[in-house]
Computed example of a mutant assay.
Amino acid sequence: MTELPNDFLLENRKGLPPDLRFLVEKYPREIWDGHANLGDTARFWLQRHDMFRELGGMLQASVGDYREGRLSPADFSRWFAPRLRFFLHQLHGHHQIEDLHYFPIFAEAERRLKRGFDILDSDHHVIHEALERNAEKGREFLLALQQNADRQRFAADAYADENERLIHMLTRHLYDEEDLIIPVILDRGEGPLGLSGY
């Protein structure tokens, strides 16, 4: 993992540095959906990102519903546990595919963005650690639902804080990742990049 300046670390970053934005300025988000080079692989990948955003938001909302008394501990547990497992598992697998397949392709295709992929790789390490903390706090929360109200409240607060931190980092990462990758696809096309079948 490459050591990054503080401003580029996921917890501190407000966006990609200007020198990594040359392709997204050429291909801004407003034109992505209608662009001829936005193929099936890119569309699927963007849908996965949207799923992570949506599911992360649903998890946050469900904790809020529990804390406000709109969900009983049993109803919350039945809804929350499988979705948390799915979210954490899918996100981990998604990052493995990116690290092993996507990032090397894009870094090779546009060498001026290599530092951007180093930033994304660093993000993945930070997010992996946050996923592990999130899973642990989630387990503690679910176990606390069998205990007294004070223990439940404490565990709910601890999980909510950890989840909020993860979702904040994930949102920044997904946005920056899309700003690096989709413009490369639009510039080169999926076929020439060898993305067919991913």
Rank of each mutant, 00 (worst) to 15 (best):
residue 16 L to M: 08
residue 16 L to W: 03
residue 19 D to V: 04
residue 20 L to K: 04
residue 21 R to M: 14
residue 21 R to F: 00
residue 21 R to I: 01
residue 23 L to F: 07
residue 24 V to R: 11
residue 24 V to T: 15
residue 24 V to D: 08
residue 24 V to H: 08
residue 26 K to Y: 02
residue 28 P to S: 07
residue 29 R to W: 07
residue 30 E to L: 09
residue 33 D to G: 13
residue 34 G to Y: 05
residue 34 G to H: 06
residue 36 A to H: 09
residue 40 D to E: 11
residue 40 D to C: 00
residue 41 T to G: 06
residue 41 T to Q: 08
residue 41 T to E: 10
residue 42 A to Y: 03
residue 43 R to Q: 14
residue 43 R to K: 15
residue 44 F to V: 10
residue 45 W to M: 14
residue 45 W to R: 12
residue 47 Q to C: 01
residue 48 R to C: 13
residue 49 H to D: 14
residue 49 H to V: 09
residue 50 D to T: 06
residue 50 D to H: 12
residue 50 D to L: 12
residue 51 M to F: 14
residue 52 F to V: 11
residue 53 R to Y: 07
residue 54 E to A: 15
residue 55 L to S: 04
residue 57 G to K: 07
residue 57 G to R: 10
residue 58 M to Y: 09
residue 58 M to C: 01
residue 59 L to V: 11
residue 59 L to N: 09
residue 59 L to Y: 10
residue 59 L to D: 06
residue 60 Q to L: 14
residue 61 A to S: 13
residue 61 A to V: 05
residue 61 A to Y: 06
residue 62 S to V: 00
residue 63 V to A: 03
residue 63 V to G: 01
residue 63 V to D: 01
residue 64 G to E: 11
residue 66 Y to E: 01
residue 68 E to F: 03
residue 68 E to N: 12
residue 69 G to T: 07
residue 70 R to Q: 11
residue 70 R to E: 12
residue 72 S to H: 04
residue 73 P to N: 06
residue 74 A to W: 03
residue 74 A to F: 05
residue 74 A to Y: 03
residue 74 A to V: 13
residue 74 A to N: 06
residue 75 D to E: 14
residue 75 D to G: 12
residue 77 S to F: 00
residue 78 R to I: 08
residue 78 R to M: 06
residue 81 A to R: 13
residue 83 R to S: 03
residue 85 R to G: 06
residue 86 F to K: 11
residue 87 F to I: 02
residue 88 L to P: 00
residue 91 L to Y: 11
residue 94 H to F: 14
residue 94 H to Q: 10
residue 97 I to H: 13
residue 97 I to P: 01
residue 97 I to A: 11
residue 99 D to I: 01
residue 99 D to Y: 02
residue 100 L to E: 14
residue 101 H to A: 10
residue 101 H to S: 11
residue 101 H to D: 10
residue 102 Y to D: 11
residue 102 Y to G: 13
residue 104 P to I: 04
residue 104 P to S: 08
residue 105 I to D: 02
residue 105 I to Q: 07
residue 107 A to D: 02
residue 107 A to I: 02
residue 108 E to Y: 00
residue 109 A to Q: 05
residue 109 A to E: 05
residue 109 A to W: 08
residue 109 A to V: 08
residue 109 A to L: 09
residue 110 E to I: 09
residue 110 E to G: 00
residue 111 R to P: 04
residue 113 L to R: 04
residue 115 R to T: 08
residue 116 G to Y: 03
residue 117 F to S: 06
residue 118 D to F: 05
residue 120 L to E: 05
residue 122 S to G: 11
residue 122 S to F: 12
residue 123 D to I: 10
residue 124 H to I: 09
residue 124 H to C: 06
residue 124 H to D: 07
residue 126 V to W: 00
residue 126 V to P: 00
residue 127 I to V: 14
residue 128 H to R: 14
residue 132 E to T: 05
residue 133 R to E: 13
residue 133 R to L: 12
residue 134 N to I: 01
residue 135 A to K: 13
residue 136 E to M: 10
residue 136 E to S: 12
residue 137 K to F: 12
residue 139 R to C: 00
residue 141 F to L: 15
residue 142 L to P: 09
residue 142 L to G: 09
residue 142 L to F: 09
residue 142 L to R: 10
residue 143 L to W: 03
residue 144 A to S: 13
residue 144 A to M: 04
residue 146 Q to P: 00
residue 146 Q to C: 02
residue 148 N to Y: 02
residue 148 N to C: 02
residue 149 A to E: 14
residue 151 R to H: 00
residue 151 R to E: 10
residue 152 Q to A: 08
residue 153 R to M: 03
